[in-house]
Design a protein around this nucleic acid. Structure first.
Length: 329
DNA sequence: AAGTCCTCCAACCGCCAAATC
DNA sequence: CGATTTGGCGGTTGGAGGACT
């Protein structure tokens, strides 16, 4: 037996709510409450609406203290940080933003904030040349960081396997000569833009792609007392035989909490425009929207969402804890 | 002025898990 | 303990209105 419909679809009104309907619903709930039963509520309130529709109207529009209008910069940061840590869990985000509804946040993200992040991603100067052979991420495989020496001055335990993140993702190959041939070190303080020009440009012998200097690969490195965040962004552009341009970029980001010997968010993605047969060669992975969202998460995780990386990261850590409380207690 | 495209957001849909029968 | 009901959630849609041609 299939599931019964929540209401008589033929006898309920759909579409925008009239002021009269709003008034009836508001008056009823303010007088009687919801009674713990949204399905029965519309009949009692004299509304020809589905109970679910009433609930949504109340929660998203009619209930007291709903905040409408522009999102503030602070709210942007909260959304960015939470998106980076928990993804599209709009109801949890709404719990962190008094007066905002999950629907509001979802709409705001989908229509404005996501584009803002994508624009930042495309225009960020550190998306430059690359590129190294990628291999599909396999959660049963123990991966290592691209070059052990990169982390020689850091607190990262390079011998521990990377943990898997969600959904389709890719890791940089550990066979990349342009990484392995360099002696790299994490700077004691975050790399500044001025540093970019002081480091060697790498050449990938097999594909002729220009690489980038090791230090700039680790812009956004934040080595605080408890947390290390690192990011890698790379890109290339080449001409195809048919005259079209082939643009590619890939990125990786990670967070390492050495209080708990815990790594998370290690993930890479790879995106291409105008390519043809490179996929078969394993040069890049997912080019779907999911990939873009992953990139946005990486972007946020590294440094672009806030002008103050310290504050942003502190917030990031605290909010993650708060989310855990909400979810499990 | 008219047609088309784009953006925004309220509302709907379908799935899932918890509660209830 | 399985079936059914309900609430809650995230994804998606459709229409209104503004921008552009």
């Amino acid at each position: 037996m299939g599931r019964a419909p929540c209401c008589d679809k033929a006898n309920v009104k759909k579409g925008p709510w009239s002021p009269e309907e709003d008034r009836k619903l508001k008056d009823y709930i303010e007088t009687h409450g919801t009674g713990g039963n949204w399905i029965a509520l519309p009949q009692k309130a004299g509304l020809r609406r589905c109970g679910k529709s009433c609930r949504l109207r109340w929660l998203n529009y009619l209930r007291p203290n709903i905040k409408h209008g522009e999102f503030s910069d602070d709210e942007d940061k909260v959304i960015c940080a939470l998106f980076a840590s928990i993804g599209s869990r709009w109801s949890i985000m709404a719990a962190q933003l008094p007066g905002r509804t999950d629907n509001d946040i979802k709409n705001y993200w989908n229509t404005k904030l996501k584009k803002k992040m994508m624009n930042s991603l495309i225009s960020m100067p550190e998306i430059r040349k690359p590129l190294h052979r990628l291999q599909p991420f396999n959660s049963s495989t123990n991966y290592s960081y691209p070059s052990l020496s990169i982390f020689q001055n850091s607190n990262i335990n390079v011998n521990a396997p990377l943990s898997s993140s969600s959904s389709p993702s890719y890791l940089y190959s550990t066979n990349t000569s342009s990484y392995h041939d360099q002696t790299l070190s994490i700077p004691s303080s975050p790399t500044t833009n001025a540093d970019h020009h002081q480091h060697p440009v790498l050449q990938s012998q097999d594909h002729g792609y220009l690489g980038m200097g090791p230090m700039e690969s680790y812009q956004g490195v934040k080595d605080g007392p408890n947390l290390v965040v690192f990011g890698v962004d790379q890109a290339s552009c080449s001409s195809n035989s048919d005259g079209s341009c082939h643009y590619e970029y890939g990125s990786a980001a990670g967070v390492y909490d050495h209080r708990n010997n815990l790594r998370n968010l290690q993930r890479d993605s790879y995106k291409e425009f105008g390519g043809n047969d490179d996929k078969e060669k394993g040069y890049y992975g997912d080019s779907s929207l999911d990939s873009s969202l992953e990139e946005i998460k990486q972007l946020i995780s590294t440094n672009l969402c806030s002008s103050n990386i310290d504050n942003n990261l502190n917030f990031f850590v605290d909010e993650t804890k708060e989310v855990e409380k909400i979810m499990y207690y």
